Amino acid sequence: MAWAILGFDKLEHLSRLIILRRILQRRSKELNIKDAIQSIDNKFLSNNQAKRQPTYNYSLNQYLECLNLEIDQLSNIGLWNESVESKVMNLLTQQCLPLDIAEAFELENMLSDSFRRPRKTLTTRWEGYVRGAINTALLPYVILEDAQKVESILRPYNPYAMDSKVIHLPNPLSENVLKALRIKKNPYLLRVNKEVILNYVESCIPDDSLNELTYNPHRIEVKAIIIQNNQINFADVLNRIDYKIFAKDYLQNIETHPLSIYTSVGPSSAFLGSYTPSLPTPQFMELTDTNQSNFNRKVWRNGRTNDSANFGRPYSEGCVLTLKNSNIMLPSNMQLAWMIEINGELVTIVNQHNQSIKI
């Protein structure tokens, strides 16, 4: 009854229903809310009513182009067709009243212009209108399982860890790396807090540059690779590590090299920063008999400069992927090695004994 009083039974937004259902399920052991969950489930088609559409050869108009990637994913799973597109356009037309859709679209673009933002930039207000219309239009056509996929596809989220998730890293690797290279030694970087580094990315301002009027940050990246029989094929290694995915690709099966350790993440959009830790590959987890819980993904930010021209950039910030278990079990003919790059230039490759490997 409380469900009806709160008005949730009138909610027709697919993604909000799925999110609400997920929240209720987490509390289902504490509260008697089975009726509420069942009310949400009743809004979707039953499995025997599911009707997948063949691939729809669509050509998006200018009003829907802002979500072309999401619509393409919906089309791939058979949930975008002519009737859905028509319903989305009708909903947008109603929402724009008393203006017609062309006038409302131009008004939103002029708003972007006034803030000196590109018209096709991400997360505009018009994009929000389209996202909402698609969520409403699709509700009558999907089963619960498909609705969960749709929510993930249409979810606007920030792939960057928010401030509550950002940690302070007392001794970032940059200090160790730069000091060791100055005296022509290999930096010791195999472990951080007894964890094995698999991928480490940091932007830092070296100590000797802090007093300069113009800061010149260094970008340092450490990339773990697997070598066989203590030999390294440089071209093969590049094929393993230079694979990036975008935030929206998380749901898709990522094809990687059989010996790749991680996939680095290139966010399709990021607010307040751009550092997103890499993801361990299924192949590496199978090879080392590990799972997601054995890995740590962290983002950190240390200090702030007083450089107003650069908006008080941090002294150092970055992200890291580590394996908790320092004893990695690899086949006898395989071992880990680490590539060290500074500002995109390969500086050295070291093995697990901290010895340089010649290419």
Rank of each mutant, 00 (worst) to 15 (best):
R26E: 15
R182N: 09
M285G: 07
L287T: 06
T136E: 15
D249K: 01
S59F: 07
I226V: 14
F105L: 06
N310Y: 14
I220W: 01
R117M: 12
P277C: 12
N61D: 14
L60P: 03
E151I: 02
A337S: 08
L97F: 09
S293D: 14
E212Q: 13
V265I: 13
N42G: 05
L20K: 09
I226A: 07
Y129A: 04
K120L: 13
K149E: 09
H13G: 00
R301N: 00
L45V: 01
N81H: 11
E127F: 02
P282D: 08
E195A: 10
Y141R: 14
N158K: 01
V347N: 03
I232P: 04
Y58I: 10
L24H: 02
L17F: 05
G128R: 07
G128S: 09
C319N: 12
K120F: 13
G312D: 01
P206V: 15
T93D: 15
E12Y: 08
A36N: 15
S269L: 11
P331M: 01
N351L: 05
V192A: 04
S274L: 09
G344V: 07
S164H: 10
H218D: 11
W80C: 04
K165P: 01
L251T: 01
L69E: 10
F295N: 01
V347G: 01
S83V: 12
A4H: 08
V84E: 03
T93M: 13
L198R: 05
Q283P: 02
Y315T: 01
N90D: 15
I245M: 08
Q94G: 08
G344S: 04
I37A: 06
S83L: 03
I342Y: 08
Y141D: 05
K43I: 04
Q95C: 07
L91E: 10
A102K: 11
Y129D: 01
S152T: 08
L272A: 13
L45T: 00
Y250E: 00
N325I: 05
G132S: 14
